[in-house]
């Protein structure tokens, strides 16, 4: 029997800007099962971080929820008052941030910051907090004497380990990891991903991974949502989607990852950039860059197709895509 921990329904969250609304999250829905991993993937600027921040309502004052529900363990987080949200933060949902370099207070010792994360949320004695901190430092592979360091004295990978330790300190059920390895060297990236997955098993966590890299998501997640222009364009289990993608954007995204699709050796990147969400194009938002766009794409928003059980695509031509053909068209574009 599967249990749904988080269910997001038709969420719309916009930022107010000079000249209108930036539609950063524009009607997305997904479910996360307890103990599973979900990946949000897409180019930078597609609204992934905005989704992550929406879940904890960590948004700037310019942000506004326009519609939708975020059901966490049955309660709609959007209906909670700030005080109740605060009680969920870190104790039930914690976050690992995009930018390890700046995610720690530069003028406080990292050990104190870790203990602060514990003491503001749980009633513990000082020595207990200390004990827990030492334990966690060791668990994430840092020696306990690192607790007395300031952030600038640590390498990027070490800082990210501190942040992971911090995320675990209150035994949360869900962790949102926003580009947890993007700022790191390749080797360190791999170590950190392994660490997160190991800890997931040990603590029975549910994780939402956010990344612009299809390969990171492929290696870590059970289910994948592909985001483009503030919307989810394709959603499926990892096997299904890598075996047969049903959206041109997904194909272009995976195409830069040679070992998955076909025998292609060359890495390419799609020309152009994601749409300006202040004034997104009508119809399909991918149309300006889509190699197979037709007239209908620019006029009508594509409906949701269930191409297989649990595999959804938002493309007018989802049912008749020829993956090979699109690949070679994409190749022609670069």
């Amino acid at each position: 029997m599967k249990m749904v921990l988080l269910e997001v329904r038709d969420l719309k969250m916009y930022y107010r800007a000079f000249g209108g609304w930036i539609r950063a999250v524009d009607g997305i829905s997904f479910e996360l099962e307890r103990g599973s991993t979900l990946g949000l993937v897409g180019e930078s600027g597609c609204g992934k971080s905005s989704v992550g921040l929406s879940l904890l309502k960590l948004l700037p004052p310019t942000a506004k929820f326009m519609s939708g529900e975020i059901l966490f363990d049955g309660t709609d987080l959007l209906n909670l008052c700030p005080e109740d949200i605060r009680k969920i933060r870190w104790k039930r949902i914690s976050m690992i941030f995009q930018n390890a370099m700046n995610a720690l207070d530069p003028v406080k010792k990292v050990g104190d910051q870790l203990m602060e994360a514990l003491t503001v949320n749980v009633n513990v004695r000082k020595d207990e907090a200390k004990k827990k901190a030492v334990e966690l430092f060791e668990r994430v592979g840092l020696s306990a004497d690192r607790m007395n360091s300031y952030p600038h004295e640590l390498s990027g990978g070490m800082k990210q380990r501190v942040i992971i330790a911090m995320a675990l300190v209150c035994n949360p059920e869900l962790i949102i990891a926003d580009e947890p390895t993007t700022a790191l060297d390749v080797v360190v990236q791999d170590q950190i991903m392994q660490l997160i997955l190991e800890l997931k098993e040990k603590f029975n966590l549910s994780i939402i991974f956010i990344s612009h890299s299809a390969s990171v998501i492929a290696e870590t997640c059970e289910r994948i949502c592909v985001m483009y222009g503030g919307k989810i364009v394709e959603q499926a289990d990892v096997r299904s989607i890598f075996k047969s993608p049903y959206h041109p954007y997904t194909i272009s995204l995976f195409y830069s990852y040679p070992s998955i699709v076909g025998e292609v050796k060359k890495l390419i990147s799609l020309p152009g950039a994601p749409p300006n969400l202040l004034n997104p194009p009508a119809g399909c938002r991918f149309a300006p860059r889509c190699p197979i766009a037709k007239k209908v794409c620019k006029a009508e928003e594509p409906p949701k197709f269930e191409v297989k059980k649990g595999h959804y695509s938002h493309c007018h031509f989802a049912m008749e895509l020829d993956v090979r053909k699109i690949q070679s068209m994409l190749e022609g574009l670069t």
Partner: peptide
């Protein structure tokens, strides 16, 4: 607007605690 402020907000600190304990010191 620094990232670490978001960290502390996410950690469940009250707005004033973030402001006076972390932001003001910096």
């Amino acid at each position: 607007r620094e990232d670490f402020i978001t960290t502390f907000k996410a950690m469940g600190l009250k707005e004033n605690a973030v402001l006076y304990k972390h932001a003001l010191r910096n």
